[in-house]
Design a protein around this nucleic acid. Sequence first.
DNA 1: CCCAATGTAATCACAAATAAACAATAACGA
DNA 2: TCGTTATTGTTTATTTGTGATTACATTGGG
Lengths: 250, 250
Amino acid sequence: MNFQLRKQHLLATLEQHGSLEVTETARQLQTTPITIRRDLAHLAAKGLLVRTHGGAVRPHVANAPVAFHRKAAANLAQKEHICRLAAAQIADGDTIFIDCGSTTFPLCPLIRHRKIRVVTNSLPVLFELAGSAVQVVVAGGEVDAERQAMHGLVAVEQLRRYQVDKAFLGVDGLSLRRGLSANSEQEASISLAAAAAARHVYLLCDASKLERDKYFQFAPLSLVGTLVTDPAAPAALVAQYREAGLLVLV
Amino acid sequence: MNFQLRKQHLLATLEQHGSLEVTETARQLQTTPITIRRDLAHLAAKGLLVRTHGGAVRPHVANAPVAFHRKAAANLAQKEHICRLAAAQIADGDTIFIDCGSTTFPLCPLIRHRKIRVVTNSLPVLFELAGSAVQVVVAGGEVDAERQAMHGLVAVEQLRRYQVDKAFLGVDGLSLRRGLSANSEQEASISLAAAAAARHVYLLCDASKLERDKYFQFAPLSLVGTLVTDPAAPAALVAQYREAGLLVLV
DNA sequence: CCCAATGTAATCACAAATAAACAATAACGA
DNA sequence: TCGTTATTGTTTATTTGTGATTACATTGGG
């Protein structure tokens, strides 16, 4: 009984029942709990399941639609700092794109009164700016309830039709060697489409994400025009990003 | 039975019923109230529900447009009656279109738990159904802040790409002689596009709008398959609409 | 207004699951 | 043959989840 066979069994069980228990599975596979736990740790690292105490569940079960404003609380101070820097880059009359995600969202209260046009695929951004001075344009298509945004073919296709002055993108990971990375191919494709439609790309990325790669690498560093981060970013690292050709705002 | 599975059950119950009770849920899940309370505390911290004394309720995600609710108050009882009739026409697995407007909006709470796909250009509908069991598809494009909906070329074009089983349209006026009329060309073009994409068109129209023409006539009566109205509609008038070839639900 | 009934928070206790360090084993190539 | 490496199992200390007990808060009638 090797890892491959166990992995097969684990995933099949999860697929069937939605969950599994470590001790029970260990008994079935004639092995010890520690081995099962190590297997589960591997699979969890690949995102194929989510660990619980005593077992595991299918990924989508655990990823309940997290209320947006709560999630945004993580690193909120840094994100607000970043958004203040970003908002200062916006001129009246601009057409900008705002990505979905908790990093870019704090931009909204800062630009409600501005005479600009905002293109977005994010529901929270839409809700926040609807009824403000801003002219909002929405990328349509299927709603991804979990991410509170529109994703998919139609959204990407529609974004391609707009030309925007500045795109403000979030990202899940960024590194000098591997560029931009995301937890979801869907988000990545939206980011790519928005970047392609923009004259200048601003990447809003708090320091905790610098030099952190996520599972899906989707673009080189050169996609980005300006990196906007916070003072927690090490000065040496900022210098390296500047050497790599990026403008960096701290 | 671990936390993840209980959480699943708790959120599903909330989604379906709108509320739950601690003791009742503890009994169902074969555990103690204290455990359920701790689970609820976790989920409440994430904003996924709101604690009450003895249970929990769904968070009112609808930080929804106030203006909309105010307008919706007119003839609300009639509109709810109409929407109940309309909801009964929807089968699991259907893809439906829901028009913007106060008449069609009360459909939303009636279909939150249904396994259907909803195409819409209405922001209130989107807000109400985001995060429910329904798969929402949004027509993109420029947001019309006043009408809280997406209108214009892009939205119409995108609607044309979808094929829906049933379209539930609102209208500002309806008459035997002049057909459907609206206060806005924008809304009319959306209605036309949705009707063209639908296998069957339901027109939701309370009795106060029957035999009332508005300034922009945009379609003949024959566009409509079924007229859904309320008991305030004169029986003679209902008979005339039936003679004109419409199915009428009262 | 008070009182009983019910729900809740706080503390403790216990069992199960876990992580960490270490040991055993097998596979592999030089 | 040896040493290296990957995999699995063992032991022990720690963490986590759960339930019991008690004291306190909230609710809804007299």
